[in-house]
Simulated assay, not measured.
Amino acid sequence: MSSLPTGEPIYEILDPRFGECIDLVAQLERLHGGLRWAEGPVYFADHHALLFSDIPNERILRYDEESGEVTLFRGASNNANGNTRDRQGRLITCEQGAGRVTRTEPDGSVAVLADSVGGKRLNAPNDVVVRSDGTIWFTDPSYGRETSFVGTPRPREVEVDGVYRLDADGGDPVLVADDFVKPNGLAFSPDESRLYIVDSGYLPDPTGPRHVRVFDVGADNTLSGGEVLVEVMPGIPDGLRVDDAGRLWIGAGDGVHCVHPDGTLLGKIRVPEAAANVAFGGPDRNRLYITATTSLYAVFLNVTGIQRP
């Protein structure tokens, strides 16, 4: 185990291979504070900017990579949580307070992509990812229906906390996994043959799961498998991203965990607050942005993140 002095990034090296991923000279930078629950980072290389959610404050913020300035991108965000981009570079957002998945058009207008399934309102879409074929995959736990802090309390209409796929030609969401307690973050492997999905059922039930499962993705966009890849503690696994070598970078209670595709925990980046989600950015895609409770952090790594599109 190795760590850096106070004031610098603190790394736990649990496997020698983690040493290849980190730069001991790079600092863990606190870029912005004063948030209530930071989430949903998504990088826009063409704008040199990162968008991220502040769920309880109902806003999406914009971090300018060149100036370091943080400004309001959108208020009244319906407790926006997870964000990603589609194949045309448009912002896709999970609005858990409104129970819907939306797309921001080039003119700034917002189009609703999904808000119901089988005539019943979705629970509270949480996180979202887009595959290279244009399909949109999202998780739909009930967190955003349970408290006013992160959503809008209301009775649920859909009994399952599911994982869904939206096909490129539209239509109702297709349920692709229904055996989760609280499906949360999700990410594809570099070749998109695997889909990693978090189950954060430990929150609010301490007997519930807190792990990442791995599914095989079929040619018809169906899922099979679903074995547990890794248990994550302390706290819960939340959002995750994958680098171009297939390693997983997972937000957890003590920072960011780096996991090999075979499930081995390689090491951790210690963060002063619980880390909710991460995104790779920067011109070389080697800067890991971390949304962690009240703050936005970043650290440069010796890895390259997958950036879609």
Rank of each mutant, 00 (worst) to 15 (best):
E39D: 11
R247M: 08
G33N: 01
P153E: 03
A292N: 03
L223Q: 03
S53P: 06
R100Y: 06
D46P: 06
T104F: 02
D107G: 04
V176E: 09
N83H: 14
Y11P: 06
L72H: 03
A275M: 01
G251K: 15
T152S: 08
E66D: 09
R87I: 15
D220W: 12
E8F: 10
G33V: 05
W37P: 02
A276Y: 07
V214Q: 05
D191F: 04
I60G: 01
S148E: 14
V25H: 13
L175I: 07
W249S: 02
T291A: 10
P204L: 10
D115G: 12
V42F: 09
A114S: 02
R90Y: 05
G251E: 10
V242N: 04
E66T: 08
G33S: 12
S77A: 15
V228C: 07
D161Q: 15
E146T: 15
G253T: 05
V42L: 10
G253E: 13
G171N: 07
D205T: 11
R308Q: 06
V259N: 11
I306K: 00
I290S: 01
Q27W: 02
S295H: 09
R85K: 11
Y43N: 05
E231G: 09
V271N: 03
H32C: 01
Y196L: 08
F73S: 08
Q307R: 05
R87C: 09
A26F: 07
D86P: 01
P272D: 13
H257S: 14
Y11I: 04
T135K: 15
P41F: 13
R74L: 12
F280C: 00
V176M: 11
L91K: 09
W249I: 01
A114R: 08
E20W: 06
V160W: 00
S109W: 02
P106Q: 12
G170K: 11
A168T: 12
L28Q: 07
S224I: 02
T147L: 07
H260C: 08
R165I: 08
V299I: 15
V214H: 03
P106E: 10
L240H: 05
A252K: 14
Y202M: 07
G208S: 08
G253M: 02
T207I: 05
G282W: 01
R131V: 04
P272R: 01
C21H: 04
E192G: 12
D172M: 04
P190W: 10
R103I: 13
Q96D: 04
L51V: 10
N184I: 06
D54S: 00
E157T: 12
R62H: 10
I290L: 06
G33Y: 08
